[in-house]
């Protein structure tokens, strides 16, 4: 079957089976391998992309369901080499370790800040409930999103909470 959609601002199309999942279309056909597959049941969220302004799990959609939609993947976030504030926040506040869940985690966080640029800690945690991370304990992910929120609002981000010194 033929599908076409907008991915990271560009028109793309491809020939897929009905059973081809959106995540496989993105990874195999478009060679955008930043969107990851971590489970089968739709729990882990590593495959999260933004579809028509909403974060969705691309492993729980058929490619054909995305016909005509507009998708942003992790590869489409930085513009002209400049990191998105959420990407910057993850780097500045150690929001990642192995980095496997990170693209999905970042996409959920980007979507949150687009709706609410000053979320509380509880709101941040609630917004990433569908993204599992086994490395960070989420602590620094929350800090990363708080950092990014401040950047989006044009404010000085809160300082890191780690103590310096050996």
């Amino acid at each position: 079957m033929q599908v076409s959609m907008t991915v990271n601002g560009g028109e793309v199309s491809g020939d897929v089976e009905a059973r081809t999942l959106l995540v496989h279309f993105i990874r195999e056909n478009l060679h955008l391998t930043g969107t990851h597959v971590g489970c089968e049941s739709g729990y882990c969220g590593a495959c999260t992309v933004i579809l028509d302004s909403k974060p969705v799990k691309s492993c729980s959609m058929l490619a054909v369901q995305a016909e005509g939609s507009s998708i942003t993947t992790i590869e489409g976030l930085a513009s002209n080499g400049e990191l998105h504030p959420v990407q910057e926040g993850f780097w500045e506040r150690h929001g990642l370790q192995c980095g496997f869940c990170t693209p999905g985690m970042i996409m959920s966080s980007v979507a949150l800040l687009e709706e609410n640029d000053n979320p509380s800690e509880a709101e941040i945690r609630h917004s990433i409930e569908g993204n599992l991370c086994r490395c960070t304990g989420y602590h620094n992910i929350v800090k990363a999103v708080e950092y990014a929120g401040a950047k989006v609002r044009g404010e000085e981000p809160p300082p890191p909470d780690w103590e310096e010194g050996s």
């Binding site: 391998t33 930043g34 969107t35 990851h36 990407q87 990642l96 980095g99 693209p103």
Partner: peptide, 14 residues
């Protein structure tokens, strides 16, 4: 981090 936060880190399946 710079590669991983851009989705450019290469895991086995990539």
């Amino acid at each position: 981090d710079p590669a991983l936060i851009r989705g450019q880190g290469l895991f086995v399946d990539d």
